[in-house]
Design a protein around this nucleic acid. Structure first.
Lengths: 246, 246
DNA sequence: GGGGAGAGATGCCGC
DNA sequence: GCGGCATTTCTCCCC
């Protein structure tokens, strides 16, 4: 079993090599930057990535309890018989001191990964699906553009309905709330002003809508269409049977 | 050096003990749930916490590339000569398959931590600071309540100005954008309606405000006060000198 | 459990 | 750099 001093030495050397480092320890943490925090002593793991980002995770929960952004710098210091991992990010003016009371394990390894995640079922995918299948909105709907940075703002989808009325569609992949309605309203207002029109239709497309949002939606004269975000891989998986057995 | 089969066996046993597990590996990942994703082969670390949450981190970046929420379940499977870590969360209907090509290291440890982080400099702290020091808003301001769930909504701070006009204050710890203005407007409208008043003042308190937001703010007849979120620990640290030397 | 709002939000894209 | 906006947002609080 290694002593804290041995681990500290290992860590100090590893930090020079810009590899992936992870260690389990008992520690307490002070952070000062955009906000300030103190975390009393307890067991956590600390990760220092090759881009010099730092994460501290408690034994439970999805999110890091403390962290530093990529581009930070880290060093070990020994003051008054205590070990500290001190981190700073000068660009963001953020500082962190981890007082390390004990180290349980330490791993350092060069990790190679240039891959990016492929994600489907996003709001953008919803807009594309509606662009390609406009009857999901309503029969006779003619899409003009999607996900476009227009002069009036970033609009998910817009086009003409079967009465040739200009229509703005705002997509939400989750249950639409009244903020989504306000967003739609903002776009409709901007387009009316920009094009000098007295009426522009607004449609909110989402899996469902909250009661408050629906009230506001109807007050504004807009309408709701129930649409779920598309999941292309689901069909793929059904063929490949890789997610069977659950 | 252990073989993949040995690591798989270690991991399989460790999963039964509900400890903190972390391993470095080469893997590819399929996720299906709220959205769907595929991550091609590369080096990552996988963390399985004692609450059965799971995190996958690439060698760079602050955020996990894939994850499962607490309360998931995980098991090792060996199919067609390939090792998989399969995870599912029945409550959230989420599934993940990690195909493990190689394992570089593996650590399993019981971690003990019941501590919660103490955070200052939040919006709530700002509201309290303004409540305690109302002259930071303007001279003669008389606070009524803060962070209160009123009948008209959740309002950061409200009170009377020196002319005894009812005033709503919305705090933002960051640069205020036009959504903050819309939020303030919503509260002011609700209070006017609820109290049957023809005029209620609105003040946005934030470190700074974007030009677009400021335009909208003045259009609505509201005003801006520059206030920074308080950092109590900063003063504490200045005394204790724990964050010196940077 | 849903709704509303903050977060040391983060990350992406566009200007 | 800022601005606007989505996120497998997450988290908390309150109804």
């Amino acid at each position: 079993m290694l002593e804290l001093a041995d681990y500290a030495s290992l860590l100090q050397n590893a930090l020079k090599k810009n590899e992936f480092n992870v260690f389990g320890c008992r520690c307490s943490i002070i952070y000062s930057g955009r906000a300030e925090s103190y975390l009393p002593p307890g067991d956590r793991i600390v990760i220092i990535k090759s881009d010099n980002s730092l994460l501290v995770h408690q034994p439970e929960g999805n999110n890091p309890v403390n962290y530093m952004k990529p581009g930070s710098s880290h060093y070990i210091s020994f003051d008054d018989g205590k070990y500290f991992l001190r981190s700073q990010n000068l660009i963001h003016r953020e500082y962190m001191d981890i007082e390390i009371h004990e180290i349980y394990f330490f791993e350092s390894k060069h990790l190679e990964d240039g891959q990016k995640i492929i994600l489907t079922g996003t709001e953008k995918d919803m807009a594309k699906m509606l662009f390609d299948n406009p009857s999901l909105i309503e029969s006779g709907f003619k899409p003009l553009s999607m996900e476009e940075q227009t002069a009036f703002g970033f609009i998910d989808l817009f086009g003409y309905d079967k009465e040739n009325t200009l229509t703005v569609i705002e997509c939400k992949r989750y249950a639409a709330d009244f903020k989504a309605v306000e967003q739609l309203k903002r776009y409709v207002e901007r387009i009316k002003q920009s094009k000098g029109l007295t009426f522009v239709r607004g449609i909110l497309a989402a899996p469902k809508i909250s009661p408050n949002a629906e009230d506001l939606l109807h007050q504004e004269g807009f309408s709701f269409v129930s649409v779920k975000p598309p999941k292309y891989l689901e069909r793929y998986d059904a063929k490949q049977k890789t997610l069977d057995g659950f």
